[in-house]
């Protein structure tokens, strides 16, 4: 078992961490390219930077906003995030491992605040899970990953807490440590491919929305042309029907139509 723990802490961690960094770098880069492309496509280069900055910073440090909606859930969520960021980065054992492997590291957090933060994460995380499960609105929009993530995130915290207190893990230390290391590796690998990618994408949200509202000139006409309706815009739906030589069919029981019966919009035009 020692081998597998060492493997998990060493090469596996390095691999998982690299994958996470590369994955996150990829989506940040893609988003930035998307923003620049969108910005260039429109003639409108007027962006309210002040507003973008204001909204972005408000959501990065959302203390003042929590009370407006779902206050308990939101406060739990913020506490959860604080612990989630600080504990893995500043836990003494993590800093030590980091120093041993790469030769440098930062100052570690003392044991007591680490413990307090860990307990906060555990309590808040459980609260978030319950908050989601008990709210009809939240349940209606939850996918399986919404329930899976808090549970997965809590595993390394619970096991890490136990492992750092000999009284809690006198006999099970190795098993818990194994779970701790592998769960963490799994989390790191999954981050770029799931909603946890918001850890790097959130600062870009406001600017993404701002440029998405910048419409490129002529786009509407080009869309109609691509669909084969260059001279039949959507405010002339009847003309589109005549053009396709198609009259609305009377209601029938069948909801499916064979694919070949109605040609692609594009082909309709070329065929004429």
């Amino acid at each position: 078992m020692d081998f597998w723990i060492q493997f998990g802490r060493g090469p596996l961690f390095a691999l998982a961490f690299s994958l996470m960094v590369l994955g996150l770098a990829r989506i940040v880069l893609l988003t930035l390219v998307g923003i620049v492309e969108a910005y260039r496509k429109s003639w409108d280069r007027i962006v309210n930077w002040k507003e973008v900055r204001r909204q972005t910073f408000h959501w990065l440090f959302p203390v003042g906003r929590l009370w407006r909606s779902r206050p308990v859930y939101s406060t739990l969520s913020m506490l959860f995030h604080v612990g989630l960021l600080l504990v893995p980065l500043f836990a003494a054992a993590h800093v030590l491992l980091w120093r041993r492997s790469v030769g440098f590291a930062w100052k570690a957090m003392p044991q007591t605040p680490t413990d307090v933060l860990t307990i906060i994460v555990l309590v808040a995380g459980t609260g978030l899970l319950l908050g989601r499960a008990t709210s009809a609105a939240a349940r209606s929009i939850s996918r399986p990953q919404e329930y899976f993530w808090p549970v997965l995130l809590l595993i390394p915290f619970a096991t890490g807490f136990a492992c750092s207190h000999a009284a809690l893990s006198a006999k099970t230390y190795q098993a818990l440590m194994l779970l701790h290391v592998y769960a963490a590796a799994l989390i790191l690998v999954l981050i770029p491919f799931t909603k946890i990618a918001h850890c790097v994408l959130t600062p870009l949200s406001q600017i993404v929305t701002a440029v998405a509202w910048k419409f490129p000139p002529g786009a509407g006409d080009r869309v109609a042309a691509t669909l084969g309706y260059a001279d039949c815009p959507s405010w002339l739906p009847k003309a589109r029907l005549t053009k396709a030589g198609h009259v609305p069919a009377p209601a029938t029981g069948s909801t499916t139509t064979a694919r070949q019966e109605i040609p692609l919009a594009k082909q309709e035009v070329t065929a004429q």
Partner: peptide, 25 residues
Amino acid sequence: KHTNYRVALDHYIRISAKCARCSVA
């Protein structure tokens, strides 16, 4: 193909955390 919505859709499908805070608004 012709508009700027793609950047927003790509971003929203990655980031949406389904927290339901919007329900209150």
